[in-house]
Design a protein around this nucleic acid. Structure first.
Length: 429
RNA sequence: GCCGGGAUAGUUUAGUGGUAGAAUUGGGGACUGUGGAUCCCCUGGCUCGGGUUCGAUUCCCGGUCCCGGCCCCA
């Protein structure tokens, strides 16, 4: 035999059992998103390279799958879905009544070294909320992300909330223009202290602003405690305090949604350049290195993509990681989806009759015809190994009476059932 | 991009410088219409390329893929 083909590195095949779990989790996410009024959208798997690289940062660019099509267009497989969905908004939905609330579940592609919880093709599920300029909107997306995880039954997750507006305003007051802020935010996100200090020096940020920034980045803990310290630290800086107050209103609104138990972490900066205000990350600590299962916040992208400015916020789950986290907790994901009955011809020349019977049975019960033309013993063994609870035996004897034989695999009980009464048979648990 | 550890039937594995066994799965049979048992038969494999060698699945180098870590992200 010649060498078989293998999957491209970092991709996966999903077998029926795993697909059932994935579809179940997708279903729960859809349900929760829709219960908050979000509607599903889908965008192309590839987009123009320009759209993808706009404001997403150097780092994303390095990990892109990009190519030219036959007309020499530069295209890229999407590495995330926020920018494509914002493009869709600008193209199709900008005149829709506000708020515009959309969600998506789709595959994304990044050329990185695969490891546990990281693949070159992975799935994101997320929402974007467009229009409301108020703190309650930012709170809603945080609450929605948490509600989704709770509905899925995930127990071990941590929510960290921060505010990039506060950080950006400190820099602004220190004389750092917006385009120079992004490298600083990147250094913060990566936790590269030396690089950060170097940058601040290079940008000639005043000593005082510098120390305020470095101190505030360290603030992490329960909201009351952190906010108290931040307020004291920022005393007299009215611009920054305004941002802090915005943040406090978000946290206050979270209370309306019944959300608690999160931690405030002013050191969160996020890896993408387009974030502006509230930012949050959710971790499933038992996943280890790849523990981040969700990231989001408010951002500014529409202007960059050629649209009018509009307040936007949202989040994305790392779908595969959410699944891993649920499995790590031993959650049962979805019920049994297999056939409930196996229709078996007792004799090779009865397969046609079996197919006919199955066709009518299928109107009321998912069932499968045994197509192997094998002995009854083997067919029963097959039903057993697949866990199919009922076997419908098509035999000459019963057929003569207009009946088929229905066998309950669990109890071994059998009875004749008139062909026209098949609609009434059920699986007894 | 960097760093470890791997790769023998579909799966789990044994083993060897002279081209390989087992268990299990799958198909058939013993049992011509009754399962989860037993027995028998069949199908099926040394990741790829190069080097050393009379001879490489085995030793060496490289690729590919897998597992994991760093970086980063989801």
């Amino acid at each position: 035999m010649t060498m078989a083909f293998t999957r491209p590195r970092g991709t996966r095949d999903f077998l029926p059992e795993e697909m059932a779990r994935r579809r179940y989790v997708e279903g729960v996410m859809r349900e929760v998103f829709e219960s908050f009024g979000y509607g599903e959208v889908q965008t192309p798997t590839f987009e123009s390279l320009e759209l993808i690289t706009a404001k997403s940062g150097e780092d994303i660019r390095r990990h892109l799958y990009h190519f030219k099509d036959k007309a020499e267009r530069d295209l890229a497989l999407r590495p995330e879905l926020t920018a494509p969905v914002m493009r869709l908004y600008i193209n199709e939905l900008k005149r829709s009544p506000k708020p515009v609330k959309v969600y998506y579940i789709g595959n994304c592609f990044r050329y990185e070294e695969p490891q546990s919880g990281r693949y070159r093709e992975f799935w994101q599920a997320g929402v974007e909320l467009i229009g409301p300029p108020h703190e309650e909107a930012e709170a809603e997306v945080v609450a929605l992300a948490m509600a989704t995880l709770e509905r899925l039954g995930l127990e071990g997750f941590e929510v960290h909330i921060g505010h990039i507006g506060v950080l950006r305003r400190i820099l602004e007051d220190g004389g750092v223009r917006e385009e120079d802020q992004n490298p600083v935010m990147n250094a913060i996100d990566k936790g590269e202290e030396a690089a950060l200090k170097g940058l601040l020096e290079k940008l000639q940020v005043p000593e005082e602003s510098r120390s305020v920034l470095l101190t505030i980045l360290e603030l992490e803990g329960p909201s009351r405690e952190v906010l108290g310290k931040a307020r004291a630290l920022l005393a007299g800086r009215t611009g920054v305090l305004e941002e802090l107050e915005r943040f406090e209103r978000v946290l206050c609104a979270l209370g309306f949604f019944g959300v608690e138990g999160y931690r405030v972490d002013l050191g969160i900066a996020r890896g993408l350049d387009y974030y502006t205000g509230t930012v949050f990350e959710i971790y499933a600590p038992r996943l280890g290195a790849q523990k981040q299962i969700c990231g989001g916040g408010s951002y500014s992208l529409t202007e960059t993509l050629g649209g009018a400015p509009v307040p936007t916020c949202g989040f994305a789950f790392g779908f595969d990681r959410v699944l891993l986290a649920l499995e790590a907790e031993g959650r049962k994901l979805g019920g049994d989806k297999g056939p409930k009955a196996l229709v078996v011809p007792a004799g090779k020349d009865l397969l046609g009759e079996a197919i006919r019977v199955a066709a009518s049975l299928r109107k009321s019960l998912p069932c499968e015809v045994d197509l192997m033309k094998r002995k009854l013993v083997k067919a029963l063994g097959y039903a057993d190994s697949r866990g199919i609870p009922l076997v419908v035996i098509i035999g000459e004897e019963e057929l003569a009476k207009g009946c088929v034989l229905v066998r309950d695999m669990k109890t071994g009980a059998q009875r004749d059932v008139k062909v026209e009464d098949l609609g009434s048979i059920k699986v007894h648990e």
